[in-house]
Write a protein that binds this DNA or RNA. Structure first.
Lengths: 98, 98
DNA sequence: GAATCTGGTTGGTGATGCAAACTGGTAGGC
DNA sequence: GCCTACCAGTTTGCATCACCAACCAGATTC
């Protein structure tokens, strides 16, 4: 198997999914963001965003902190160190392949 | 929306799928390949490979030529010019994003 | 006749995307 | 107080897609 194909075959599917890739790339850049910010930046509807966040949480790639902005609930997201590493590895393989 | 995220959002989903990305990247490099070669290089089972090829054909990204190697049937695949352009655009967006 | 070869099709399972319904709380009008 | 509307997210129902194994078709070879 040639090495470009090898890299593609090894891509982390959890991160490769564009919806989650946007989330992870955003969190990688800003360290912390809330649900509404992610929704606005990614253009996803809230149901889809919510389910991608759940998937990333289940994978332990993001940490979720439910808090309040005044009296309004706010969900804060950040990348875990595992998530950060996974993204860096994904990015490295993508760069090597293309 | 920041430009990295914009690029990710615009990625062609038909090509983004790793199975099809491997096929397209291989065909981009070699111009023509047969079914068994693709199966061997990608490691996919034939059912999955066959359905990805059908999808790419439906999208008019690949051309399929059913022929014979001696008396044994052989399916030859090549990228169409639309497929070539789509791959180049995909690669450009990936490179810009990462 | 039985096994092999190439490739396609089918059936089942899980993932994704969207809209709509829902939850638990807040705010405003009267 | 009470009713309605809103807000932040989550869950659900439905359609489509991806993956694998198994089976099938048509021809060949042993």
């Amino acid at each position: 198997m040639n090495s470009q194909i090898q890299r593609i075959a090894e891509l982390d599917r959890v991160i490769h999914e564009p919806g989650r890739l946007m989330i992870v790339a955003l969190l990688y850049a800003v360290d912390q963001a809330d649900f509404l910010y992610l929704q606005h930046e990614t253009g996803m509807n809230k149901g889809t965003l919510s389910s991608h966040i759940s998937r990333l949480e289940k994978e332990e790639y993001v940490e979720v902190l439910k808090t309040y902005r005044g009296k309004v609930p706010q969900t804060l997201l950040s990348l875990s160190s595992a998530g950060r590493k996974a993204f860096e590895q994904y990015r490295r393989k993508i760069r090597e392949a293309f």
